[in-house]
């Protein structure tokens, strides 16, 4: 680039090819604006996948290798679930699959065939009130950088629904699959205890 600060790319390695880029999927009205771009054949997307994401039908083609997390983030542009390890070791990618919390990074997208996925984006109605767990996370400052937070919130909602909120020790144990490197653990426990009450009342 030294000789070309204005920035026309110079001729480069012969390996470069110009394939037409498709976002590779997902004509889903209202899911995410970028996802509604014209889908074109993405290399490797050989599997047809039909599922429901946040209550909406998704009909798309995926690469069999694609994780549920990468499907959500890269194809459906639902970037709330996060990649923190890509090996099921941190919980940042937690979503609900048929109502149960799972590590979406370690779930083949293909396994979501005909199943229901709930992500942080679908936890509360858009523009409306927050889910009691989300509000409790704010109230107890159960977060710092916020990167693990969507996964924590999704895990926490499950933790309550599973009935694992008998006492602080049980919450700690059942929230240990979600690493918070900022160390907001005491706030997370307090938020869950608070939200558990509100969820029962609600």
């Amino acid at each position: 680039m030294d000789d070309d600060p204005a920035g026309v790319p110079p001729a480069i390695s012969p390996c470069l090819t110009r394939r037409e880029a498709g976002l590779g999927a997902a004509l889903v009205a209202g899911l995410a604006p970028a996802a509604a771009q014209a889908a074109q054949a993405t290399p490797g997307a050989t599997l047809r996948l039909v599922l429901r994401v946040n209550g909406k039908a998704v009909d798309t083609m995926v690469d069999p290798r694609t994780s549920l997390l990468d499907l959500l983030r890269e194809q459906l542009h639902l970037t709330g679930a996060k990649k923190g390890c890509d090996h099921g070791q941190c919980g940042a990618c937690t979503v609900h699959l048929d109502g149960r919390r799972v590590a979406s990074c370690l779930t083949l997208a293909a396994k979501a065939q005909d199943r229901r996925v709930l992500t942080i984006e679908g936890l509360a109605p858009p523009g409306g009130a927050l889910h009691p767990m989300q509000q409790a996370f704010i109230d107890h400052d159960a977060l710092q950088c916020g990167y693990c937070t969507p996964g924590q919130v999704m895990a926490a909602v499950s933790c309550v629904r599973e009935g694992h909120v008998t006492d602080a020790a049980q919450i700690r144990e059942y929230m240990s699959g979600n690493i918070c490197r900022c160390g907001a653990y005491t706030g997370i426990v307090a938020a869950i205890q608070d939200a558990a009450t509100r969820m029962r009342e609600g």
Binding site: T79, F137, T149
Partner: peptide, 26 residues
């Protein structure tokens, strides 16, 4: 309350890898 907490609990905060761009290559 933390000013950006509302976005963070909704997964709406955009970190670098969340940047949406057309024709994004990996």
């Amino acid at each position: 309350a933390r000013v950006d907490a509302r976005d963070k609990v909704r997964g709406a905060t955009r970190y670098a890898a969340d940047t949406p761009l057309p024709r994004l290559a990996h």
